[in-house]
Computed example of a mutant assay.
Amino acid sequence: MIDLDATDRALLRALAVDASQSASALGRRLGLSQPATWRRIRRLEEAGAIKGRRLRLNAEALGFGVTVFLGVKLATKGRVSLEDFERAVSAIPEVQRVEHILGLYDYRLRVVARDIPDFERVLRRRIMTLPGAGEVEANVVLSEERRPGPL
């Protein structure tokens, strides 16, 4: 774990809101020079506090109007390795997130599709044919009120 001071925390909050801000703009906001801000960002990246910067796309504007969370229970835990399942499911472009979880299901998947018939196609032809795929529970997202934010 890295020791963070108040400036580091303010810097992380600012980057979590908009990671495209320049070091000079961040520095002005935080009362730091551009080089000092850049050194802090690099230190936070090297320490692993910043894992990367991502572009958030609007899935609906790009034609993906349906988001579904799937709970997947593996049918043959002993015969199919978790790595085989993870590798295969990660190759499906509609699967946006793969989480190995503890509970009723072994995995939770976030899947995007153009519409319900498109989701059914992805489910039947891609997900249900994965090595070891067993029981599946689908939860369609009706609305998303909170976006991921800072820790």
Rank of each mutant, 00 (worst) to 15 (best):
T67A: 08
F69M: 02
R56P: 04
G103A: 11
R124C: 03
F69Q: 03
K51T: 11
A88S: 13
R53N: 01
L57R: 12
R53F: 13
E94N: 01
G78F: 00
Y105C: 08
L102I: 11
K77W: 06
R121E: 12
R97P: 02
G103E: 09
E94K: 07
R125F: 11
A113F: 02
R108H: 02
R121V: 06
R114N: 03
D115I: 02
I101G: 14
F64S: 01
F119P: 06
V68T: 00
I116W: 14
E86L: 12
E99S: 15
R125I: 04
G71Q: 11
E60Q: 11
R108M: 13
G63M: 08
P131S: 04
V72K: 12
I101T: 11
A59S: 15
F85M: 04
L109C: 03
P117A: 10
A61K: 05
G134N: 03
A75I: 04
S90L: 12
V89G: 00
P117E: 01
D118A: 12
V112S: 07
L82K: 09
F85K: 00
R114Y: 00
L62G: 05
Y105D: 12
T129H: 04
A88E: 10
E135M: 00
V80K: 10
G132D: 10
G65I: 01
D106W: 05
R124L: 13
G71A: 13
T67V: 10
Q96I: 07
R53T: 04
R121P: 02
V68K: 08
V89E: 01
K73R: 14
R79D: 04
R108Q: 10
N58W: 02
Y107E: 06
E135S: 08
R108E: 14
I127D: 02
R56C: 08
G71N: 06
G132H: 05
L55P: 03
T76P: 00
E86R: 13
F64W: 12
G71Y: 09
R56V: 14
R53D: 06
K51G: 07
L74M: 15
K77F: 00
E60M: 13
L74P: 12
G132K: 10
A75R: 15
D84S: 14
F69A: 05
E120I: 04
R124K: 09
R110Q: 07
P131R: 08
R108D: 09
